[in-house]
Structures are given as structure tokens and as C-alpha cells.
């Protein structure tokens, strides 16, 4: 999604979401990691249904963005890849969820507008 695409989305009333997370494969990875403290590559493969190459590529993108921390270690004589969401990644995922929730379940008429007006109303009164 480009910057012009984002502004077009905003003009259409669509939520402006993090394009890095909005891709279904990466959303599955980030959501899976958000539900756990840490998970290994094999669990992510099973949970997301991605292929090894696909998962590896998406994990690299998320790691480059600082959303996922990857630790490569050994268990016995076998390599073991552990992944965990960083605080930055967790915050980005939470922002994504809130944006999508606000878009899909808009507050009843009056509710959100009233909430948005509240600070102004308060300043008017003061």
C-alpha cells in the first residue's frame, strides 16, 4: 500500500492500517505470536499453514521492521528457531486490531460522536 493508497483509503472511510501486518500471511504470524510468549518455527508452520519458504520470507520482513525477534539456537544437535513479538510488534498489532474493530463495529450513532465531542464540550463549558 502506497502513501497515495492510504490517503485514498482514508477518503473512502477505510481504516489506515499497518500494511506490514495487513497481509494475511503476516497477520497470521503476528496474531499467533501475540497469543504466546514465544514459539518456534515448527509451531508457526503448523499454526499459519504457510510453507517453510513463505514463512521464512515473511518472518524476515517482520524481523527487519523490528516487530519480531528471532533467536537461532540449538536443541541437542538440531537447530532451533525461536520467535517472539517485540514490544513494538505487539503495539503495532494492538493498533491494527483496534483500527479494524473500529471499522467493522462502529459505535452506535451518537456514541462515538458524543465521545469525540466531549473534550470540546468540556472546554466550551470551562
Amino acid at each position: 500500500m502506497t502513501a497515495s493508497g492510504s490517503s485514498q483509503d482514508a477518503a473512502r472511510g477505510l481504516p489506515r492500517v499497518d500494511p506490514l501486518i495487513h497481509v494475511p500471511a503476516r497477520l497470521a504470524i503476528v496474531a499467533t505470536l501475540a497469543a504466546v510468549e514465544e514459539a518456534d518455527f515448527r509451531y508457526l508452520l503448523r499454526a499459519t499453514g504457510l510453507t517453510k519458504g513463505n514463512l521464512s520470507a515473511h518472518l524476515s520482513k517482520l524481523a527487519d521492521a523490528g516487530y519480531v525477534h528471532i533467536t537461532k539456537t540449538f536443541r541437542g544437535k538440531y537447530p532451533w528457531t525461536l520467535c517472539r513479538l517485540t514490544p513494538k510488534g505487539r503495539a503495532a498489532f494492538e493498533a491494527y486490531r483496534q483500527a479494524m474493530r473500529a471499522y467493522l463495529d462502529p459505535a452506535p450513532p451518537g456514541g462515538a460522536q458524543a465521545a469525540a465531542r466531549a473534550p470540546d464540550d468540556a472546554s466550551d463549558r470551562s
Binding site: A28, V30, A31, V36, R46, A47
Partner: peptide
């Protein structure tokens, strides 16, 4: 559904519970 079908966190937590 997948993570796009509803709340992705609930989807992932459900998958973890079933896995456990």
C-alpha cells in the same frame, strides 16, 4: 475461519488452546 475472519488474537488463542 482464518485470522482475517474475526478477531485475529482470538483465532490464535483458540488455536493455541486446541494445540495444548
Amino acid at each position: 475461519g482464518g485470522p482475517m475472519a474475526g478477531d485475529p488474537l482470538q483465532w490464535a488463542e483458540g488455536a493455541l488452546r486446541r494445540y495444548w
